[in-house]
């Protein structure tokens, strides 16, 4: 298991020849599955003069592009390798996809009754070779006397997992809704 901000954010991205492409900006996935697969990699490029098949009139600085995950050749400990040669990569739209950093991390988590729980500190991903899946929402500082509602959620999860220590991650499958306008993630009612 890896945490996005801790392990992947700003990780260097290179092509198969080791040419620097940029750094990891975000990960995109579709909402709806219990543990959604990461479908695209957002890379921040220092500059580029093409976007997908299109050559630009003039280069642009500091742009973040979304590459389909099929172009990822390897997820190594210190870099992500894209198959192919820079800058000849396909680009996909972020339409209809959620972004881990932009839409989930640092956003407000609320329960099904609208009670504020805490902001999301990180997202935990399961890595299986070059496949990444969104597994859990990570909350730090749960050792603080946070709201009784958050405590209830975590205690239920601990009992369910029969864990010896209180869990401080919330499975992604419990997230009911991601409201991008309000920057709020809502949990499903806990049974």
């Amino acid at each position: 298991m890896i945490r996005f901000k801790e392990a992947l954010f700003h990780m260097p991205v290179t092509d198969e020849e080791g040419t620097p492409v940029g750094q990891v900006e975000d990960l995109a996935f579709a909402f709806g599955e219990a543990t959604p697969v990461v479908e695209a990699l957002a890379v921040e490029l220092p500059w580029t003069d093409r976007i997908g098949p299109f050559r630009l009139v003039r280069p642009v600085d500091d742009i973040a592009l979304l590459f389909p995950w099929s172009q990822v050749a390897a997820v190594e400990e210190s870099r992500i390798v894209l198959g192919g040669r820079h800058p000849g990569f396909d680009v996909v739209s972020a339409e209809g996809l959620l972004l881990v950093r932009q839409d989930v991390i640092d956003k407000q988590l609320v329960d099904d009754e609208g009670n504020r729980l805490q902001r999301v500190d990180d997202v935990i991903l399961d890595q299986d070779g070059r496949t990444l899946r969104v597994e859990e929402v990570y909350l730090g500082m749960t050792w603080l006397p946070t709201s009784v509602h958050l405590k209830e959620v975590l205690q239920r999860l601990t009992r369910k997992a029969r864990a010896s220590e209180e869990v401080d991650e919330i499975p992604w499958q419990l997230v009911d809704d991601v409201d991008r306008d309000a920057d709020v993630l809502t949990l499903k009612p806990l049974q």
Binding site: Q108, L109, R119, L144, V148
Partner: peptide, 16 residues
């Protein structure tokens, strides 16, 4: 930090 903050709720719901 995303913690509950409201003078209209009891302290147990907004302890911090």
């Amino acid at each position: 930090f995303g913690w509950e903050a409201d003078v209209d709720v009891p302290p147990s719901e907004a302890p911090i």
